[in-house]
């Protein structure tokens, strides 16, 4: 497939995106506008993340792509194949082996290292958008640090549900300055936004890139009398028995039977291989 430039995008475009990324890293949480390109996939399928990944990849990189924590879903498989074809980079499903991880809606369970880059796909980068539709006004609010409105959203949650019911895309304040939408990750993952890895966020349709550099302070917004809670399902993983991971609920039959499994498939499989067992694990002797 030598008809493509390395990683699909032309070098000038990648330079433009890298400049936006550098600016984003320099101003943690600030949304940097960039000239998003048409990509060979629909908006909403990760065009922003793909462009950021393309700008970060080198031939020596090892790429992992996950969607809702899983390596084997359509979106993850397509994007992984896309870069296999256009960049010929090594791909992996193992979190530790990857140097670049593109993700939709999750942070891997395995703690990331300084040698890794985590690229998020972002649908709507503006955390204030649902309450303030005017872009001119939200920009001004960021510039002047007028973030009272963000708490109005949380206030409405408590007024309606008795607690902060926002369970994903939970707003955070980065390095005591910018309020940021962490993309629709579950709020379970919010504490892990403080990471050793570089975290880059790309919104293709909205044409914004932003970043959280390693070891940056990231605080989830809350009220004094309604502090941020990580929220965790009661159950353990039915396959690997883990009690500390984010779980997916899977309906298994028409009688309402269900099971809970780690949403991070690689993490779960690794634990199973290491001999951990859950409620519904296949019996050893049956195998």
């Amino acid at each position: 497939m030598s008809d493509y430039n390395f990683a699909y995008l032309d070098e000038q475009t990648k330079r433009m995106i890298r400049r936006a990324i550098l600016k984003g890293v320099a101003i943690p949480g600030y949304q940097v506008p960039f000239a998003s390109r048409e990509m060979p996939m629909p908006y909403g399928w990760g065009t922003g993340g793909v462009q950021v990944t393309a700008a970060c990849l080198t031939p020596d990189d090892t790429l992992k792509v996950i969607d809702q924590g899983a390596d084997d879903t359509t979106n993850a498989v397509s994007i992984r194949k896309f870069f296999e074809n256009t960049a010929q980079v090594d791909v992996t499903e193992c979190t530790q082996e990857a140097s670049v991880i593109q993700t939709r809606h999750r942070i891997p369970e395995e703690p990331l290292t300084e040698d890794q880059i985590l690229v998020y796909q972002v649908p709507i980068p503006e955390p204030l958008r649902f309450l303030e539709p005017r872009e001119t006004e939200t920009r001004k609010m960021h510039a002047l640090e007028e973030y009272g409105l963000m708490h109005v959203k949380l206030y409405e949650d408590i007024a309606r549900h008795g607690h902060i019911a926002t369970s994903y895309a939970y707003p955070v304040k980065v390095e005591d300055r910018y309020v940021m939408d962490p993309s629709p990750i579950p709020k379970f993952d919010n504490p892990r936004l403080e990471s050793a890895a570089i975290q880059l966020f790309g919104a293709g349709r909205e044409q914004r890139i932003y970043a959280v550099p390693p070891y940056t302070k990231v605080v989830s917004l809350d009220f004094e009398d309604h502090p941020f809670e990580q929220m965790k399902a009661e159950q353990d993983c039915d396959l690997c028995g883990a009690g500390h991971t984010y779980l997916d609920e899977v309906i298994v039959n028409d009688q309402g039977g269900r099971m809970f499994v780690c949403s991070d498939t690689n993490y779960c499989a690794t634990r199973c291989d290491a001999g951990h067992r859950g409620r519904l694990s296949p019996e050893e002797d049956a195998a």
């Binding site: 009272g148 409105l149 708490h151 004094e224 009398d225």
Partner: peptide, 13 residues
Amino acid sequence: GERLMAVGARHYG
């Protein structure tokens, strides 16, 4: 409440 939160009120009650 918005104006209160805009000037820094952070106690829901």
